[in-house]
Simulated scan of single mutants.
Amino acid sequence: MTQDQIDQHSTGPAYLPYQRMGKLREWGGPLPKSWHQLQTEIQKTITTYMIDLGMVPVFPTFNAHVSRELFDLFSWKSMKINKFWSTYTAEKHCCDMFVDPEDPLFERIGKMFLNEITSDFDDRAVLIVQNTMWNSESSRWADHIVESVLTAVSKGRMIILDTMLQKDLNNKTCTLFHGQPYIWIVDTQKLNWDMYEAIDPPYNTIVGLGVSPSVMEQNYMLVEWVLEAAWRSKRPSLPEWQQQYASRRYGCNATASAWGHLLNSVYKGNMDIYTIISWPSQPLYNVYSRFPKYELLEAWRKFVFVPDDECRSPAFEYNLIDVTRHALHYRALQVYMSLRNNDAMVPAATTRHVVGRRAEQRALDCR
């Protein structure tokens, strides 16, 4: 392939994850050769440090996504174009080709890919498999098919990245690891608080806990709860743990009851949809909240009127704004429902909605 053909495939650095999933091409690119050289040197340095510290690095393997230019050059019949993703429907930016894993071409490219990786890094490999597809496409992944994947290599040569266990501890994937070790990855804002059950049999092949980037920096309590599990053998009392968390985070005990109300509201269920970012539609969406409004609003009140000046730490102020934002979102939902139930409320509801959004903006400006 020529450099021009490669450039038509490469996205900018911020979009590389989407390109590697076959969803996007060329957007924000191309990447100069110097960038690739620098990344290789950085990766070698990081990998060396990881191995010296006893860490196990994880490298990619061939995922069947190839450039459209490669298809144009060879016209392999086993290649299929990926589906359009999001709003990137233009021919120029979507989509890449997918090689049928049953085609000999898949193995041929896969070996070339692995040879390139191991020549620069490490040839001792353990297969890493994420189990999301077993749930998101469960109709295509019957139990016997999942079993054949999990038993294709000896025990210990495969590690499952389990992103589904938190949603349902009785999920069928929990019983289909067939002795393969797994790492529990938390990747949503809502957590099953009975996660400690996963450490007990029959889930005793767990070898680690992790948190995906989509949770980090936005849900501190959940992250601490998850990572503390690595140091505990039994599930602690959640109300007691929550009070200790509030004290550690703010350096005071004045918000312990407020956090109790949050546990009984936003940590138990979500709104079906955030109305302030919804597209206008007719008829209006039928939305509702899955937790009692009193709990959230009472948590907000206790954050706002906390009597202890010692709580006025940066962490407290950050969470005060977050709770305020969520409460104003809830108020927007109430206004929206009043509009949905009575057309005569349009002028008043519109005014209240605008006032609420301005109040939210003022709160966010305090950060």
Rank of each mutant, 00 (worst) to 15 (best):
D7M: 05
G12N: 09
M21W: 12
M21P: 12
M21A: 15
R25W: 05
P32E: 07
S34P: 08
E41Q: 12
I42H: 13
Q43W: 14
K44V: 14
T47I: 13
I51W: 01
I51K: 04
N63F: 08
A64Y: 11
S67P: 10
L70R: 02
F71V: 07
L73I: 08
F74K: 11
S75W: 11
K77Q: 13
K80T: 11
W85E: 13
S86M: 11
K92W: 10
C94I: 06
C95E: 10
D96C: 12
D100F: 10
P101L: 06
D103K: 09
E107T: 12
R108A: 07
I109P: 00
K111I: 13
M112R: 08
F113N: 08
I117L: 04
A125I: 14
L127C: 13
T132N: 10
W134Y: 13
W134R: 05
R140E: 04
W141E: 04
W141V: 06
V149P: 01
A152Q: 01
V153R: 02
S154L: 00
K155M: 01
I160R: 02
L161S: 06
D162M: 03
L169H: 12
N170S: 09
K172I: 14
H178R: 14
G179H: 08
A198Y: 10
A198P: 00
D200I: 11
P201H: 09
T205E: 13
L209M: 07
L209Y: 11
N219M: 04
N219V: 03
L222S: 09
V223E: 00
W225K: 15
W225R: 15
A230E: 08
R232N: 10
K234L: 10
P236A: 03
S237G: 11
L238E: 07
Y245H: 14
A246E: 03
R249N: 09
G251P: 06
C252E: 05
T255P: 02
G260F: 05
H261N: 10
L263R: 07
K268I: 07
N270L: 04
N270I: 01
M271F: 07
I276Q: 06
V287N: 02
S289G: 13
R290V: 00
P292N: 15
V304H: 13
D309G: 05
E310G: 13
E310K: 15
E317D: 13
L320G: 01
L320K: 07
I321T: 12
D322M: 15
D322P: 07
L328Q: 02
A332W: 01
A332H: 04
L333A: 05
M337G: 05
M337Y: 03
N342Y: 00
D343G: 09
T350L: 00
E360N: 10
R362M: 10
R362W: 15
